[in-house]
Design a protein around this nucleic acid. Sequence first.
DNA 1: TCTGTGTGATGGTACGTATCATCACAGGAG
DNA 2: CTCCTGTGATGATACGTACCATCACACAGA
Lengths: 345, 345
Amino acid sequence: MAGNGDVRTRRVTQREIARIAGVSQATVSAVLNGSTSATVRIPPATRERVQRALEQARYVADPAARRLAGLGNKILGVFTYEPAMSVETVDFYGPLLTGIEESAERLGCDLLFLTASPVVGGRRRLLDRRTRFRLADGCLLLGQDMDEQEVAELVAEGYPCVAVGRREEPSIPYVGVDYGALTLELLTRARALGHRRATYLHADRQTPSALDRVEALGRATAGGVLDVRTEIVTDDDLERAARDAAGRGETLVLCENAFTAARVGSALVDDDTVSVAALGETEGHAVAGRQVSGFRLPRTRMAHEALTLLHRIIDGEAAPAKRHRLLPGRVEPGETLRAADGASR
Amino acid sequence: MAGNGDVRTRRVTQREIARIAGVSQATVSAVLNGSTSATVRIPPATRERVQRALEQARYVADPAARRLAGLGNKILGVFTYEPAMSVETVDFYGPLLTGIEESAERLGCDLLFLTASPVVGGRRRLLDRRTRFRLADGCLLLGQDMDEQEVAELVAEGYPCVAVGRREEPSIPYVGVDYGALTLELLTRARALGHRRATYLHADRQTPSALDRVEALGRATAGGVLDVRTEIVTDDDLERAARDAAGRGETLVLCENAFTAARVGSALVDDDTVSVAALGETEGHAVAGRQVSGFRLPRTRMAHEALTLLHRIIDGEAAPAKRHRLLPGRVEPGETLRAADGASR
DNA sequence: TCTGTGTGATGGTACGTATCATCACAGGAG
DNA sequence: CTCCTGTGATGATACGTACCATCACACAGA
């Protein structure tokens, strides 16, 4: 039957309670919801009788029925475009999950992880006939490689969504990190250390945050902070490109993330004249015992803010204008970004 | 409104599809479920017309309605008696979550984390009026400190549950680790290293796995493997009790878990005549650079097995007799359990 | 013509909850 | 006695899906 069998296990319903208390199902519902409309009134005596029956029979509302009746049920969906708890991805998702769980507990919400969404073309697909996210009052979207069109459709439908990470599509609410400001701050620090020319090695991914970094590098170059050359490389070309940069006399190689920075750092470990830094989170990454220079991103706080925003949108409290949020991060000085005059061992 | 507002966002229902295709809602349902009963038959032409309408209008079934109609909807609940993704507990729960996510994906199920269940008396309460686990087809239960009575009630109702960790209550299905066998194996190894007398320091917790360890120690003593004294200690008394054991000439101090073992190890770090071992997972725990001796528990695999068992129970495929499973672990020799003749630095 | 039979589809109802419109009744005013 | 009003509670219905019982129809056989 593959999980499609009859799963009715409930025994005690409002009707059952009504029978015990000698009232109607409607009255039970009214007591449960504390309805004090002008038209429906419950005197304390009846109310108490029903309450006792509820206690005694251990009544628990059926969330499916509540949902069907058009009410929210305090379930928030969590959609990740790749597995979130696997050994490989837990470094990235872990801090986010921490924040998500904390916030959900604080808000009194349960979390529906949409682990069943079918994988099409390497990433999970959100809009599919089998998807169950509509059971949730709203949905949190995590992952670099998001199909913004798909999400925009959902938003247009009126379904509450919040993305973690900046999005281009203006209709999508999001909570992200200000990569532009962080990039600029790191470059300013590099300039203070004597650097003048750098190369940014990247894979030319078109995600919003990747574009933010490139754009900030462009502004920095135009503004005379640092002259940054950008080069699109594949994973195989990384070391070659780094050595080329050194050969051109550049003193700093910037990378997209801590992994590539670590590889570049290893390739150049003998060359004290070239610094390396990542334009991403570098916690726990080191080259030859040296902490990789880069960013510290407030991932747990991002999750907090995202869940809070989602909750507000569900409650209709978030003005459309206040649905985009960029949080500040922190530059991690690290030990792989050193003074440019080099040879300072 | 605190999430209780009207959240109806759905637009396209079976009725809508029926209108488009010029058939009845019942026909749409039949097409969707591929019903080929003797009584209801859909010719290919009609079937195709409905299919086209479904595609065109991007129909997505409402899981709440499915559930209400008595069908499973491939949602598995995950109930943890404490936060699972917090910084403090991720060491313990992380590998379990990895297995849970993997299995859920493999089974095509979504996961409902019951983070909203109210905390009463230090642990989350499962049976509460506000709980939403009944939305799930079944529920996985995680946590040391489980209220077995509560779970037994649930099982008696016919609600599919599986606990991770052994349970006393025979009606509760579980997947656990064979602590008894592991304890015996560690003691046998200790004997081979020359140890004859040991003390087990524990907090006298009444969880099944704690009792299993104590019982195995008793069997080992009775069987002449090793003479193990057990002592109930509070956290404050730990170091004192460990020094007392050394004073009595015992050569091995056994602890309940890696944390207490590490503390005892630190207190006795200057005394090479006394070994320390934990009767629990010790991965990542060390004293003065020495890996703490203890167990390796197959936690990811436990989660796999537990989810698989849950799925089987939901499908009615698991005979009641096959609902209890103890997995073997592995003894981690480590470096804090040394030869008993000591002074071998 | 009547009866049976197979085909294609539909109407009605159940699931559990929320809500609106309605109703029975008592007591006071006219 | 009738009308009105406020009180207490209920019946009916909607939500979206699944499924059983039923029906209309055509066609063949007696």
